[in-house]
Design a protein around this nucleic acid. Structure first.
Lengths: 202, 202
DNA sequence: CGCTTATTGTGCAGTCACTGCAAAATTGCA
DNA sequence: TGCAATTTTGCAGTGACTGCACAATAAGCG
């Protein structure tokens, strides 16, 4: 159903051009934010640099924030699918650690885009509200996936939502720690955080 | 330093009028949101119902969302102070459970305002992004307070931020569970959630 | 190739949140 | 009462975002 992330060539010219435009807008937004800071960038500029009209910008992204943070529906689906499938000897929390860490690591094809997204994310605290807003979508998708994985027993709904919410919050806490000049490398801190969650907090 | 929440009479006419205006705007916003839904309410309407100009609205609140969700700096300070002071036999997590539950419970003076805030909060999912945005402020204030309580040992910064972030995320998860028609009473679920966190997740 | 049809891009007009600025109204204080 | 500080307000402007109608373009078909 969903085109997997590696096949760029989903048939028609139409589809390809749409992806190119989306990507161009995405890159333009990241460029400009790096140059001038998020607040000083206008949607008009982003559209201009990507070579489309301002109106078209809003055909691709519902907001200025989305063009910078932009988790695509495809990405979302792929993360959800990864969580739904139970890997042997892996608890839900361990799956989440792996998947969420993967979202930050410039691993798959679009490593350029992801690396820059990450840099901006760590550097621009003013994006934090938009970031957490975006997380809601991720949280809902992952919660649904985990519910399916755990089956429909009573109490599972809350359990699933709680697990996902805490995992995302842990990653976000590490990012904010980083932004506030905290010590330690991001990945290392994330590992520490998940270990804490597994062991129980006081 | 900070006027505590019970003394309404902090001297002058000026101060009193400011509080009244703030409260009038707050109530007007809640009224209108209950009537028409958040998206359909304009700042102009809110100001009009409160009997002030649109421009004045923005002297009191930085955004439309803030008038609805509106955690005042005083509230923030009072929560932070409550967390900083260590109660005997209470772990940080237990303190957070008590304090965050108190934010939802219509306990102190302004029970009317708080009860309506809570009802709207549970009923209007479109406010979720604004809600989590607001949580950032709360999180930062509580993190700083917990850091002070725990002292300046290495690793405390991350530990404090993580604990606060997880506690807030737990409450939020329970709220969203409620919004999505999940089972159980809110307070009961929050208790369950905190017990889980203390015991460790899988 | 041409023609029809479904998408997609764009311009335009409009709404609304939000801001800076300067003048007017109000309050505090001597 | 009169002066100084603060608050309110109007005004003009910017910029995000939307609906709509129309132009441009790709897709499918004879």
């Amino acid at each position: 159903m969903s085109t997997d992330l590696l096949t760029d060539d989903a048939c028609g010219l139409r589809e390809r051009k749409k992806r190119e435009t989306r990507r161009a807008l995405n890159l333009a937004a990241l460029d400009l934010v790096e140059e001038k800071g998020f607040a000083a960038v206008t949607t008009e500029e982003i559209a201009a640099r990507a070579g489309v009209s301002t109106r078209t910008f809003f055909n691709y992204f519902p907001s200025k924030e989305a063009a910078v943070i932009g988790t695509t529906p495809e990405e979302l689906e792929s993360y959800a699918a990864a969580l739904e499938e139970a890997v042997p000897h892996e608890t839900p929390l361990q799956s989440l650690r792996r998947i969420l860490a993967g979202m930050l690591a410039p691993a798959s094809i679009d490593r350029e885009l992801r690396a820059r997204r990450r840099r901006i994310l760590l550097g621009e605290p003013s994006l934090a509200p938009a970031l957490v807003g975006n997380n809601i979508r991720i949280e809902n998708a992952l919660t649904a996936a985990l519910e399916r994985r755990l089956g429909a027993e009573p109490g599972v709904a809350l359990e699933a939502r709680l697990t996902v919410a805490l995992a995302i919050a842990a990653v976000r806490a590490c990012i904010e720690h980083q932004q506030n000049g905290g010590s330690g490398r991001l990945e290392r801190n994330i590992d520490l955080a998940f270990d804490r969650i597994a062991a129980g907090l006081r």
